[in-house]
């Protein structure tokens, strides 16, 4: 196994482009090293991105948007004084990952690029409208988070491409987001269903919404019918029922050791309602 720790993304990209066999980038390593130890994936080339300058930074830009470095950890996000005020849903989704130890290593980028349909931060990022900057042999491009995963363990990143930054939009006024997941226990488990909701209000009325579902299809879904169900409403019972029905309809899960199709589908609707209520309360400036 070859281990590299390039000094910049261009170098990282070049190393990945010329590598043969299985290549993995090493951010927190909480997926890569676990898969290595359990002999699921033994990479031929390991490219550590943590030595690149600025990769742990969490920056609020002049326009209110955020740039999160690819090695910024869950713990750093939770401890940031302002990020959670703008995007509580994204921060709490990341914070659900693993234990204190895992939080000290795990990153948004790793969670996204590992390609798990059950990744917790991904529905929250999709709902928030997050994009990532992808650096490749031909330079940089900006890609919506929902366009990165293509199936379990698969991404749309081409050979030689890697994520070089995570871009969260400006929060703006009267907005709120939330993420909820279902696990049979209270922590240290993998999402059986995950739901991210992000919305904006004008008075009591929802004017914009993005709803995303995790663990109910081969990739995290952005469900427009869910958004349609609540836009224009004040999140009354009828709108919530329509939201649940749209979530139900969008699910395409599998039966496995972690949950049945019937269960996942049903609970997706339940969680969509609950997450929407939290996001709504947050948009109104209430504590939730």
């Amino acid at each position: 196994m070859d281990y590299h720790s390039p000094a910049n993304f261009a170098e990282a990209s070049a190393l990945a482009a010329s590598a043969t066999g299985i290549t993995r980038f090493l951010a927190g390593g909480t997926d890569v090293l676990v898969q290595l130890r359990s002999e699921l994936v033994t990479p031929d080339t390991l490219i550590d991105v943590k030595k690149i300058e600025g990769v742990s930074d969490i920056i609020r830009n002049a326009d209110g948007s955020w740039t999160i470095g690819v090695a910024a950890t869950g713990a750093e996000m939770s401890e940031h004084p302002e990020l959670g005020g703008d995007w509580p849903g994204v921060v709490e989704a990341m914070d659900l990952i693993g234990s204190t130890q895992v939080q000290g290593r795990a990153t948004l980028t790793g969670n996204l690029c590992n390609g798990s349909p059950a990744a917790d931060s991904v529905p929250a990022m999709v709902a928030a409208g997050v994009t990532v900057t992808v650096t490749g042999p031909d330079g940089d491009r900006e890609v919506a988070v929902e366009d990165i995963p293509t199936g379990p363990g698969k991404t749309s990143l081409a050979k030689g491409e890697l994520v070089s930054a995570v871009n969260i939009p400006a929060r703006g006024d009267n907005g709120g987001d939330a993420y909820l997941r279902f696990i049979p226990r209270t922590e240290m488990d993998i999402a059986v269903v995950g739901v991210g909701v992000n919305l904006r209000l004008d008075g009591d009325t929802v004017t914009e919404a993005r709803v995303s579902l995790g663990a109910v299809a081969p990739t995290v879904l952005l469900v427009e019918d869910c958004a349609k169900a609540i836009v224009g409403s004040t999140l009354g019972d009828a709108a919530l029922d329509a939201l649940a029905a749209a979530a139900f309809a969008a699910c395409n899960p599998i039966d496995d050791k972690r949950g049945t199709i019937a269960f996942r589908t049903e609970v997706a609707g339940v969680l969509a309602k609950r997450a929407a209520k939290i996001a709504y309360a947050r948009a109104k400036g209430e504590q939730a």
Binding site: P184, R185, T186, D189, K257
Partner: peptide
């Protein structure tokens, strides 16, 4: 232990 779900302390 991820999928063989013994209770965690908070359960």
């Amino acid at each position: 232990f991820l999928d063989y779900r013994i209770p965690v302390a908070s359960d």
